[in-house]
Design a protein around this nucleic acid. Sequence first.
DNA 1: ATCCAAAGGACTGATGCTGGCCCATTGAAC
DNA 2: GTTCAATGGGCCAGCATCAGTCCTTTGGAT
Lengths: 238, 238
Amino acid sequence: MAVHEGGAAALFRPVRTRNAFEETVGRLLQAIRLGVAAPGEKLPSERDLAARLGVSRVTLRDAIRALVDAGYVESRRGRYGGTFVAVTLPSPPPRPAPGDDLEDVLTLRRVLESGAAEAAAARTLTPAERRHLTAALLDVSDVDTDEAEYRRRDSRLHLAIAEVAASASLTTAVADIRTRVNELLDAIPLLAVNIEHSDAQHRSIVDAILAGNPVAARQAMDEHLDGTSALLRGFLCG
Amino acid sequence: MAVHEGGAAALFRPVRTRNAFEETVGRLLQAIRLGVAAPGEKLPSERDLAARLGVSRVTLRDAIRALVDAGYVESRRGRYGGTFVAVTLPSPPPRPAPGDDLEDVLTLRRVLESGAAEAAAARTLTPAERRHLTAALLDVSDVDTDEAEYRRRDSRLHLAIAEVAASASLTTAVADIRTRVNELLDAIPLLAVNIEHSDAQHRSIVDAILAGNPVAARQAMDEHLDGTSALLRGFLCG
DNA sequence: ATCCAAAGGACTGATGCTGGCCCATTGAAC
DNA sequence: GTTCAATGGGCCAGCATCAGTCCTTTGGAT
């Protein structure tokens, strides 16, 4: 009698997809792409970052070196020096075919992000959290025609929603799934119409969360996600 | 201007919590604890497992050795030999205080598992999937007073629900969160009353999924999870 | 003008993990 | 009874990664 095949795939998956160097590059890229580290901003010092990422300074430096070469960051020596996110970011390399995992990504995103919205609305938010959320919302609606910048602020709003759900693991999961979704979005054009829709939907979501209405928050998020899901399916699958 | 503090914590978290050996032990233990590898069953061969886990055979063997020493598995040499899950599993070591992450775990679990139930109900299941789900349901209701065995079958049912949601990443996430929940459950007693309640709730969940009713599936799962959440909060927090 | 603290840059020895190779054991098939 | 294939057991050279240490650059404080 051998192990049950169904669940085995989920558990006997690779323990480590990438090595420490690659993971580190990925993590930094993720921070830049999601807008957590905005253009021009300074990253933490190498010693600090290495400690936070649980990686040796050598490995971190190799990763930073790769990002410098690729044009994502710049390093300056001396006191008040550091590593800075480039003011003008390189455009991401063209992605290969998204393949089977389109539905995988969309399914997981719906579960995580709608769940986060509901969980956030179910809590009693502190004033700081309410401000954080509102600020992120205003940021998104305040972009003039820079597609890349819009996508970063959009990600930051969605991350902020996950944050106020007050589950660190959930925030992490949302950050990961957004990175995957963004990779797919990079392959398709962003239309002004979509942005207008999104802005209105963002407002509904945040309103529902601030009002403490979990059902409405979930529903608003569902609607919002359905929009981009349809967009992605249309461009990538049709 | 430094990086935005909120999201930074989610992204600048450790790249690797544990080393390859520890991760491997954890993965195998997870498979055993969740009942994916049931007592007496044979694990895949070392060469096969090492490949699936993306780890060298040396590392895998070290991990297996640790599990042999701990009494979780037994190895037999020769053709038709292999590594077998022990027939009587050791009881898990007493856990330290669960601490802050109780709410973290419970929040994420609700998001993932209720989301999985809804996603599963939203699909049109194949006959094989319907059978898989039904079989897992019958398995759970068919346990006589063996607490550990009950928990394994319970986990397998919940995993089966995630599987029929047809998102590999979601299945993985559910497996991980269940491992964390089970660690907490190990610290508290399981009452017969709870089992009866659970059986009825399991039936409602599966019924809703088979009927293709996402709203009912989510609601049933929410109710089910609320039960154990309350139990855990009561025992661990009060 | 000098000093100094904070940052990046560079090196080294120790350790973990890998990939490959061969040996030892077992039970079925012939 | 011999053979053979599949499996666990063990070993080793090489590479990745780590922790620690020291050097270099820079600009504000004195």
